[in-house]
């Protein structure tokens, strides 16, 4: 799947809203570059549990243990990619 195709299937603004609500970040995630390193903005592994649960609820997906990696939650685009993989 190409990046462009992936973008079209995943609602990026919904991901941003989840991050704004559960990310406990020090930056405005609604206007953030999609590749910005969220760990550099204060993201912790514990906060990612809340993000994961909210994403599961919003997109009706279930993250397998193997996807609970630092890389999955690194940026808006990496989350979008993960969600795209789970919804397809």
């Amino acid at each position: 799947m190409t990046d462009a195709a992936m973008q079209s299937t995943v609602d990026i603004s919904a991901i941003r809203q989840v991050l704004a609500q559960h990310g406990r970040l020090t930056v405005d995630v609604l206007t953030l570059d999609e590749d910005f390193d969220l760990y550099g903005a204060g993201l912790t592994s514990l906060a990612t549990v809340g993000i994961m649960l909210a994403l599961e609820d919003r997109f009706e997906v279930e993250f397998p243990e193997s996807m609970l990696s630092r890389g999955t939650f690194r940026s808006v685009s990496s989350i979008a990619e993960a969600v795209a993989n789970l919804t397809n």
């Binding site: 592994s45 990696s69 939650f73």
Partner: peptide
């Protein structure tokens, strides 16, 4: 305890 996730690296 802090980071619980597998690291990519």
């Amino acid at each position: 305890p802090g980071n619980f996730y597998p690291l990519a690296s």
